Simulated scan of single mutants.
Amino acid sequence: MSAVHSPSNSDDKQRLLVSAIEGVASGDADALRVVYGMTSAKLFGICLRICGERASAEDVLQAVYIRVWERAGRFDAARASPITWLATIARNSAIDWRRSVAGRAVRDALPLEAALAVADDEPRADQMLMATEDGEKLRLCMEELDERTRWCIRSAFFDGSTYAELAHRENIPLGTMKSWIRRGLMRLKGCLGNG
């Protein structure tokens, strides 16, 4: 990828990001720089929210882009938007980091407001997903879930909370939390399949 232009709207940005990820899959280091430039602020915000400390979030972010370099060939634009795919890698990497340090003293995650200090004028991954036609269907299906299940799914998949953290917050067994989320996801899948 030689010249990088500043896309004017979200569709152009999404196309540029898809193209850049395809370039990364071909081993193009310049394409990785484009992906990084377009997404690092957002992905850092995800890492910071889950890790709870800046230095660890920076380390996790580096690991995220290594994974992007290694896995770019697996990205399928027909299955997920590029930012959703990248945000999932960031979330999973940060959760893996939290699990790896679970035996050591780790500060609790920063409050959600701390992520607001990270400069990023792009909408959040969940907002972008909800903005698409499929996102509208997902939003409607999410509204069909009871409030507790909706909160659990949002906390787990958009805020980066682990099932164990959610079970602790709700003061219920881990297995119960997993069941709530699993049943909610099955209802979502059924609702989305009926569209």
Rank of each mutant, 00 (worst) to 15 (best):
T84H: 01
A87Y: 00
R91A: 00
E70K: 15
S81C: 01
S100K: 01
E70W: 07
V106W: 02
R98Y: 14
T84C: 02
A115R: 10
V68T: 11
I89S: 07
P111K: 04
A105H: 08
A90K: 09
Y65T: 11
I89F: 04
R107N: 06
V101C: 13
A77Q: 12
A117W: 11
A114K: 00
G73H: 04
R74Y: 05
S100T: 06
L86T: 10
A115D: 04
L116C: 12
S100Q: 01
P123F: 02
V64E: 00
A87G: 15
P123L: 05
I95F: 14
R79V: 08
R99I: 12
V64W: 00
G103F: 00
T88V: 03
D108F: 03
A87L: 01
R91F: 11
N92K: 05
A94W: 07
R91N: 10
R99V: 07
P123Y: 03
E113I: 12
R91E: 07
S81G: 13
L110C: 08
P111Q: 06
L112R: 11
S81H: 01
V101M: 09
L112D: 13
E70D: 14
I83H: 11
D108M: 00
D120N: 15
V101L: 04
V68K: 06
L112A: 15
R79M: 10
A78Q: 08
R91L: 07
R104N: 08
D76Q: 07
E122G: 12
V106R: 02
L116N: 14
A80I: 05
I66H: 05
V101G: 09
A78G: 14
T88P: 07
A80H: 13
R67Y: 03
A117Q: 13
R79Y: 04
R79I: 07
A114G: 03
L86Q: 11
D76A: 02
R99A: 14
A105C: 07
G73Y: 01
P123M: 05
L116Y: 13
A109L: 05
L116D: 15
D96I: 13
A105Y: 04
A105V: 08
L86I: 04
T88N: 15
A72Q: 13
A90H: 05
A78K: 03
W97L: 01
S93H: 01
A72F: 05
I89D: 10
I95L: 14
A72C: 07
N92L: 08
V106E: 00
E113S: 13
I83W: 07
V64T: 02
D76N: 09
I66G: 03
A117N: 12
P123D: 10
D76F: 03
G73K: 08
R79K: 14
G73V: 01
A102M: 03
A87R: 01
D108L: 01
V68C: 10
R104C: 09
D96S: 15
A94P: 03
L110Q: 06
A87P: 04
I89K: 05
D96P: 10
L112N: 08
W69N: 05
D121C: 10
A90S: 15
A72M: 09
V106H: 02
W69P: 02
A117I: 09
P111G: 09
T84V: 06
I89T: 10
L116E: 15
S100P: 01
I89C: 06
W69Q: 06
A63E: 10
F75Y: 15
A117H: 12
P82Y: 11
P82L: 04
A105W: 05
A94Q: 02
P111D: 13
S81L: 08
A78N: 06
